[in-house]
Design a protein around this nucleic acid. Structure first.
Lengths: 336, 336
DNA sequence: CCGTTTTACGTAAACGTTTACTCCAATAAG
DNA sequence: CTTATTGGAGTAAACGTTTACGTAAAACGG
């Protein structure tokens, strides 16, 4: 159908080897033939077939990305970083929306293997043993973004505990003493437990006792933020601030508070997590502890590709509080 | 490195042809050998190489998707529909973030061609002649989502004019008489001009004169919504409602109104477009004319793949107003 | 001017599949 | 019992590249 390297060779009166060499600029031809061949190529509109190329040199220049939901803001920002970096390095990316479903993840892993991707990036999902086995079996480089594992697999993420500690300290420094927390999925060893730990430590630094009833769990999504806020306030009439483990949940909390006619930040302060677009768009704009999601995406492909030789090591990315308008400093003496 | 079909054949004492036939369940072997081979396959953990397969039968079972920005809500919902449908049909998808940049689009088009994708889906971007030439040159099926072109290329979108007409009628029916519009990118023949046309027609139906100063342009993004709202209100103190050409711009408008202490919907009503998550999360939740984005994504791959034989035809998807809390009925006599 | 190196190519095998042919044995038909 | 048919396989070419190897001519060294 399309022209092949043979057609080019024939038309240019050279061998396919020569054409190939020119295409890959390897040595072994005169300047004259090079020009000739190049001219024929543009004349015919020849495009090399990456499949054939991939078959022989066992590189497809494509990466696989597994993520829980393309359509959530968090993952899609990471994805866009990955995409941009991949594009710069002449790689393509295949996205696999695992939809929080392990079976599908395994199916994808197999598809990616069959399609001979050069590496896999795994975003923000719990990394099961099953995945580990599958991936090591296929001997593919992999990096984890915004998650980590029990295995020796490089990851790239922020230090959740430290990030939350800073976020809660931010509240504490502004006079808040009764701070609730809307945490992520209960039991999540990556994004929930360390964050609660950070929350505890911050409280502890100020000599404030930790109370179990002040942390409620969600699932990082908007709706769960609504419910969590309701539950939290039901059991804790006195909180003056809530730390939320995702911007979406913070938006949910905001929504609930609005419905209850509780003003933010006048009556209750809110801080989110991630610094996604929803934090910017919220009313009032959310103060949030930001993760450099786009950069994390970029770095993940860099790590993946550099890994070739020396197993590259994991890295922690810096977090940074994005100050906006959802937090009020309160007078410590009055408590409100 | 990995096992090949030859290894399987050898170990099972059959020829590669037989193994291949079994793998593709074509006829030509006894039940006994089938079992034997299958057993060997699982024993060895053999996985076929899709690259080799693709080379010979000229199908890669992968699709290319071009979109302006993965990280915007709109495109990512479409993408997730594409992804799900593709997964069901055992296709993989390569995403290409064109970042509103034509050069990059051309580069992607070339990469997709070299990688021999089976089809291309083009989301929501203006379809340049340059693209048309490139794509027809590679003789690949293509479908346009949420955009259309001057060429004979199947598209799938809602009827923008009609959708806006309905949205504006919704406002009209609730007594609004002075309605502003925050439109998309000026001059956009797909998503701006027809929508303004719909706005005009709705006004016309009620015998209200169209005024140029009541439509201002944005770029579909949040920030542009802020600016557009400001400009609109500066020139039109009397509007009681604003129709926005995207939810994000509506969120921007909301944000501006909040800052100005103008209550929504009490003082000004707002309706958005798209029905993305941001409409749900807004405060107050946005009434918006919804596009079935996820379904559009799903259908696009169906269309693309069915196209093989009879050129499938374009389709319009139904829009639907999602009623939430950003619109107030006003008393016609007072004009509020 | 002869031997050696270098340059500029060409030939063909290889990558891992699929599939058109071929072939033999067993079965069915007459 | 012969002949046609069928079922169960194997052989090898093909897909479009890359690349190891070979080779003739040109360039070079002495």
């Amino acid at each position: 159908m399309s022209y092949t390297i043979k057609d080019v060779a024939k038309k240019a009166n050279v061998s396919v080897a020569t054409v190939s060499r020119i295409l890959n600029n390897l040595p072994g031809y005169s300047e004259k033939t090079k020009e000739k061949v190049l001219q024929v190529i543009t004349e015919m509109g020849y495009q090399p077939n990456a499949i054939a190329r991939g078959l022989i040199n066992k590189k497809t220049k494509t990466l696989g990305v597994l993520l829980p939901a393309v359509s959530d803001t968090f993952a899609s920002v990471v994805l866009s970083g990955i995409e941009d970096m991949a594009h710069d390095l002449d790689y393509s990316v295949m996205v696999c929306n695992t939809a929080k479903d392990g079976i599908r993840t395994m199916k994808y892993l197999q598809a990616l293997r069959e399609k001979q991707v050069d590496g896999i990036i795994f975003i923000s999902e719990f990394f099961k043993e099953e995945y580990y086995n599958a991936i090591t079996a296929m001997k593919l480089p992999i990096v984890l973004v915004s998650t980590k594992s029990a295995y020796d697999i490089p990851f790239i993420k922020v230090d959740d505990e430290k990030a939350v500690l800073d976020g809660v300290m931010y509240l504490l420094e502004r006079g808040h003493r009764s701070i609730g927390m809307i945490a992520g999925t209960k039991g999540d060893t990556i994004a929930t437990i360390p964050r609660i730990e950070g929350y505890k430590k911050a409280l502890n630094k100020q000599g404030i006792a930790f109370e179990t009833k002040k942390v409620v769990y969600g699932d990082f999504g908007f709706e769960s933020g609504i419910e969590a806020a309701e539950e939290l306030l039901y059991h804790n009439k006195d909180v003056t601030a809530i730390f939320c483990s995702s911007d979406e949940m913070a938006a949910g909390a905001l929504s609930y508070l609005y419905r209850m006619s509780i003003r933010v930040p006048d009556e209750i302060s809110l801080v989110g997590y991630d610094n996604t677009k929803v934090a910017e768009m919220a009313i009032p704009p959310l103060t949030t502890v930001g993760q450099p999601l786009y950069e994390m995406g970029k770095n993940s492909v860099r790590m993946l590709l550099e890994r070739e030789d020396g197993q590259s090591k994991s890295m922690f990315m810096p977090h940074k509080i994005a100050e906006r308008e959802s937090v009020k400093s309160i007078d410590q003496s009055t408590g409100e």
